[in-house]
Amino acid sequence: MHDSRIAEDPKERARLLARRAYERGRLRLGLLPALLTLLFTLISLSLGREPLYSGAIGLGLAAIAVLFTYRGGIPGRAVLPGLVAGMPPLLFPWALRSVGHYCTSGSCHSLCLLGCVSGGLVAGFLLGKWATNQSARYTFLASGGILATGAGLLGCTMAGAAGMVGMSAALVLSSVPILMLSPTPSGAR
């Protein structure tokens, strides 16, 4: 409808303004996950490894979280579970470092790698469990998995490429079987 007609017709004007308000409200919803990703990025930066790399992953993760939340639906519902599931692979290596095991840029103690892999396993298990309750379980798992992997990558920078690959593989390996083995509810995909 033409703008001048919209301005004249109170109903159309209200419809347009209400629609804009709705879209703004959706964007506002993305603030909480964005803040959470900011916190994750700060934790990653505090590990003191590759700030540029952490910043880039953090930015990408925030963008995906806001986009998924804004769009809504299954990906939107998977945002917070995905970020929460991403906490173990983010925090395990960090915790292992703070209890005395230290990773340097040249070499990393095996416990860091272990932290990443075990964190990935826990993340995958949690996501798999949560996805079983969803109608579109694989879409939920994929969306949540992207966010959990992003969060995990932020923590596993200190374990190098091996840690990152190990964490991602562990996440997939522990989540998909749960979905495959659990009974499919009616209407689930």
């Binding site: 303004l17 209400a18 308000a21 709705y22 703004r24 409200g25 959706r26």
Partner: peptide
Amino acid sequence: LIKLFSHIS
């Protein structure tokens, strides 16, 4: 209605 749609979540 603007408020309603803004906070419908």
